[in-house]
Amino acid sequence: MKRVSLFIPCLVDMVLPHIGESTVTLLRHLDCESTYHSEQTCCGLMSFNSGFRKEARRLARHFIRVFENDEWIVSPSGSCVNMVKNRYLELFEDDPVWFARAQGLAPRVYELSQFIVDHLGVEDLGGTRHAKVAYHESCSTLNALGVSAQPKALIRSVRGTELVELTGADICCGFGGTFANSFADVSTALVRQKAEYFLASGADLLVMCDPGCLLNIQGYLDRHHPGRRAVHLADYLAGSIGEKTQVAT
C-alpha cells in the first residue's frame, strides 16, 4: 500500500471540502493510504500572483517544511501544484538553500489525475455513472502542467459516461484569482462564454481539475442558470465508483 500525502488547497479546505474527501476515496480505491498533515496551511499562490513575494516566501517555507519528507504529494488542483512544482523555483531564485529544498520537493508533487494515470498507471477506475459530460481544460492544468489526456482518459473509462466535445474547452474561464474581482467585466465576459459553450455542448455536467475554475463557473451558473452543474473530477470519479460523496454546505 502506497502512502500518499494530501496537499489540500485552502479553497478545498474551507469552501469545497467534498473534493478532498473524494480525493481520499479515489486513492483508497487505488490501494493508496492518504495521510494528511494538519500543519499544512496555504501554498502562497495568491500572494505570489499578487506580487507579494516576501509573504509568499514565508508561506512557501512553511509548506516545504511540512511536506518535504513525503514521497508522494498529491493535490486536486492544477494551479496549486504548478505553484509548488514550478513557481517556488522562481520565488527562491536568490536563495540557494531554499531553492535546493524547493527543487528537491518539486518532482514529488502531482496533480491528482496525473498521479493516477502517469504514476499509478491506472486509466480505468472501473466505475459506472450514466451521464453526458464535457471537460473544461483548466489553464494551469493544461498549459503549465501539460495535463489533459489523463483526466479525459479517466472520464472515458467510466461506464455509461459519454464525454462530449466542448467548444473553446481550452479557453480560460476568466477566474485568474483576484482577476475575477478586479477585472470583473472581462472575467464575466469569459465565464459567460464558458457557460454558453457548456450549455451548447448538450452535456449534463462540466468536469474540471481545478477548484478555482469550479468556484467561478459554478458561481456564474448558480446566478444565471440555476440547476446546471460544474463538478470537480475527483467528485465525478468518486461518484462513479459507488462512494457517493456528500456535497456538504
Binding site: V12, V15, A184, S187, V191
Partner: peptide, 16 residues
C-alpha cells in the same frame, strides 16, 4: 466585482 455576476457557496460548517 465577483458578486456582480457570480454567487459564492456558503462556507461549510467544518473545514476538511
Amino acid at each position: 466585482g465577483w458578486f456582480s455576476s457570480r454567487d459564492l457557496p456558503a462556507l461549510p460548517a467544518k473545514t476538511l
